[in-house]
């Protein structure tokens, strides 16, 4: 069973008289352990697709199964639970809580899982160690470089042991050297069996993926497997 199964999904936005087909009959299936890059220009529908995969949105029509469950039939709370347990998010601008230590930032998904303080702390430290920040637990985002902040964000994404990491332009705010570091981390995660989906408009970033999906005008125009560039 594929982790992500999208069948003929459309997403329509209505703004007054204007009708925008952000997604126009998309079908897609992603297996566990794949490292997929979704590429497209702005306005192509890739953000809509990402929101859909991330259970932040619901399709207008069609079906989306995440780990076998129909996301379209989930309520607000079930979607939140799915995001909490199955998905880890990595954002372009990191989106860490300001004036909050790295460790507390990483603990946050576990707080919403209802995991107790001691367990939370242990797992947060282990996740931060895994991304190479075991020495900076008490640093707040302001005390960390961009690359380090993104690694904290990745630690936050993996701490809940999700099946899917969803990264939205994860290197958009990073220089080329730290971009390589972050991509290496994501590639390593892929090797441990976690599915990674990266949304980007940069071909250099897409080159790191095993599979490349190109979106334009709400449709998938290209979907190919490739030999990834080693980071």
């Amino acid at each position: 069973m594929p982790l992500i199964e999208i069948q003929d999904v459309t997403k329509v936005y209505r703004m007054g008289d204007n009708v925008l087909n952000a997604l126009d009959g998309v079908s897609l299936s992603i297996e566990e352990g794949e490292l997929v890059a979704i590429m497209g220009a702005s306005g192509s529908g890739k953000s809509t697709l990402m929101n859909l995969i991330g259970c932040l949105d619901r399709p207008t029509s069609g079906k989306y199964l995440l780990a076998g469950k129909d996301v379209g039939k989930m309520g607000v709370n079930e979607q939140a639970e799915a995001r909490n347990r199955l998905i880890g998010f990595v954002f372009q601008n990191f989106n860490l809580l300001a004036r909050t230590s790295a460790q507390e930032n990483v603990e946050l998904p576990l707080v919403y899982q209802g995991i107790g303080g001691r367990d939370r702390k242990r797992r947060a430290i282990s996740a931060l160690t895994r991304v190479g920040l075991g020495e900076r637990l008490d640093h707040t985002p302001a005390q960390l470089s961009g690359g380090q902040q993104q690694r904290v964000a990745i630690a936050r994404a993996i701490v809940g042991e999700p099946k899917l990491i969803l990264a939205d332009e994860p290197t958009g705010a990073l220089d080329s050297k730290t971009t390589v570091e972050v991509m290496r981390l994501l590639q390593d995660l892929g090797k441990t069996g976690i599915t990674v989906v990266i949304v980007t408009h940069e071909p250099e970033v897409g080159a790191y993926a095993n599979r490349l999906i190109v979106v334009r005008d709400g449709k998938i125009i290209e979907d190919k497997h490739q030999e990834p560039v080693a980071a």
Binding site: G54, L56, V76, N77, A80, E81, R83, N84, R85, G88, F89, F91, N95, L97, L108, P109, Y112, Q113, R156, G160
Partner: peptide, 16 residues
């Protein structure tokens, strides 16, 4: 608002 968005994305339910 953005903090709320982040919290929701990582699994906070409306009641949280």
């Amino acid at each position: 608002t953005r903090e709320i968005g982040v919290r929701m994305a990582i699994g906070a339910k409306p009641r949280h």
